[in-house]
Design a protein around this nucleic acid. Sequence first.
DNA 1: ACAGATGGTGGTAGCGCTATCTCCACTGTA
DNA 2: TACAGTGGAGATAGCGCTACCACCATCTGT
Lengths: 353, 353
Amino acid sequence: MEETGVNRGRRRRGGEGPTVADVARAAGVSLMTVSRVVNGESRVSVETRSRVEQAIEQLNYVPNPAARSLAGGGQCRLALLYDNPSASFLSELLVGSLDQARRSDAQLLLEPYDPGEPTRALVSRLGKHRIDGVLLPAPLGDQADVVSALAAAGLPLARVAATVAMPHGHAVEIDDEAAAHAMARHLIDLGHRRIGFIAGSARYPVSALRLAGFERALREAGLSLEPGLVARGDYTYRAGLEAAEQLLSLSPRPTAIFASNDDMAAGAMAAAHRHGLDVPRDLSICGFDDTATARSIWPELTTIRQPAADMAARAVAILAEHVAVARRHQAMAQRVEPMSFELIRRASDGPPA
Amino acid sequence: MEETGVNRGRRRRGGEGPTVADVARAAGVSLMTVSRVVNGESRVSVETRSRVEQAIEQLNYVPNPAARSLAGGGQCRLALLYDNPSASFLSELLVGSLDQARRSDAQLLLEPYDPGEPTRALVSRLGKHRIDGVLLPAPLGDQADVVSALAAAGLPLARVAATVAMPHGHAVEIDDEAAAHAMARHLIDLGHRRIGFIAGSARYPVSALRLAGFERALREAGLSLEPGLVARGDYTYRAGLEAAEQLLSLSPRPTAIFASNDDMAAGAMAAAHRHGLDVPRDLSICGFDDTATARSIWPELTTIRQPAADMAARAVAILAEHVAVARRHQAMAQRVEPMSFELIRRASDGPPA
DNA sequence: ACAGATGGTGGTAGCGCTATCTCCACTGTA
DNA sequence: TACAGTGGAGATAGCGCTACCACCATCTGT
């Protein structure tokens, strides 16, 4: 403890942890060289680089993000506008975006979205917090008024899990049509020929996409599209239950039901049980979204998973890049990144009886 | 654009936004005075304060968190250790803690908890990230090995929604016993006399508390404790279904079932429907936790809500305070804060037939 | 009346890092 | 030999803020 003198240098803070200066001293190089190594810049000889890396390892050095962002053009502030009370989606979103925010040196602020608030007020609220960019998850990203108001205010946007094309804002999305197609195809491959579909409310653009994917799969398999096999619901459990009742009253009844989201699939499951049907022996049921519901019902639901965390992470990365580019007074082209969904097979599907 | 000269002062960054210097100039005071006002310190005359506040308002000044944390003892880094895949709980936790983190000038890092990882490894992982404190939400906060390992490493802890007393770490909790008591009492007040209870797995201390609350309510109402009316489950939908089957096969069967969490209540609901019982006319069903499930089934579930967001916010505030106190080389006494739960009445309960 | 508490304010020195310029040693070309 | 061009490294000046000390007025008590 005494080799450092009385309190050499570090008078103020609790002052734990080594700094670039410590590393530089240990490696016998200058501060800048250490900085260059840490930031992976090119102009450092391999030899010097490895010496510095060794010193870093040895001292267990971690750069101070505050100092870094203060000195560099670094940190930016991103707002995650949220209204979606679908908790599982939100939490995945948060996990993904927080993680990437740390990497991209961005600060993430959660801002609630109030549908009643005029967009002007929203814009000024974000301005007050010196927001550099905005993430618009799922239903918000498809809302034209919000998107255009924020875009008009000059804020970079990233729409997460958006489904419709828009002139403004970056987007990270999955192909809902293809996902629905994949699930329908999966059921057809299992041998199902009469498949009931519970479509979502026509208010959301995504509903049409999922229906379209379903229909395409049927068409490609040479199956007829019976209008009676498509019911509609508003994405709630109860709607799923009622829609399924309707589908199950058909004769012959479908051997599988594909619902446009998990809650409706759960409702369909309840309807099946009411009818004394065993799932999946007598009826296969599939959902979409892979929310918490999917695993909290029994049998656990086969469904489509959106990589919400990854999507959010990409969105944060894109926004951070946008902000960095903008600070150099350059423009960044609109970016639309597709992400791949995943068909999660659990226990609610099987070949028809 | 030209009144500032070529690039007066602000050579490097995009440099948007006013700084303390701008505010100081506008208010005709020194930097320090502005800083004092912003930080709510006492030694400023009301007159000066209001002048500064006006300037802040006018310039729309927001302090730069990076600079603040670099200069002052300010910012601390808190890790939220999470393993609970119960998404709704996690997202509430995140919303609450992020919000408070902003206020308390703390940076929140999400660290996954892997039950397989030795506690040594966990501690060193947190150390690598220069963590100043750790939040331990729900099941983790009751895990003695984790708590004691982190405490031994000298890390301040805040256990969120913990249920058992421990010698280390602050805690923010609700009274599970009282909450279960309140719900049982509610059912009794509705007129129920035969109430089935689905207890949780004995592995978790919380299970015993909820059972105890239930039993106390019965005792206080002068009702007998029939052992047959208490079933057990492991907090899954399926376990709830099976436990409810067992309770419903009793004769006379209970007129109400109180499950120790929402998933088991959902399972009980399915069992009721299988038996052709109408909920709540023929059978009342209540849950605990108010997870997403509670509102995604039908009828929507009457349940107990923990204020997860508020709890997390308090936990963050306590940890931030602890870190600040510790940096002044003082100790902070263990703090245990009770929060109040709420009985959320929805549509799954009513008077007995 | 004077030492000592205050209450209110300003000056200054960094916090740990990176941008930018400078410097040096080498290469290749005329 | 002289010249620019290059890759590698160091020196220095801040980024925006707060801790710390210094300072000057007022107030206290004896």
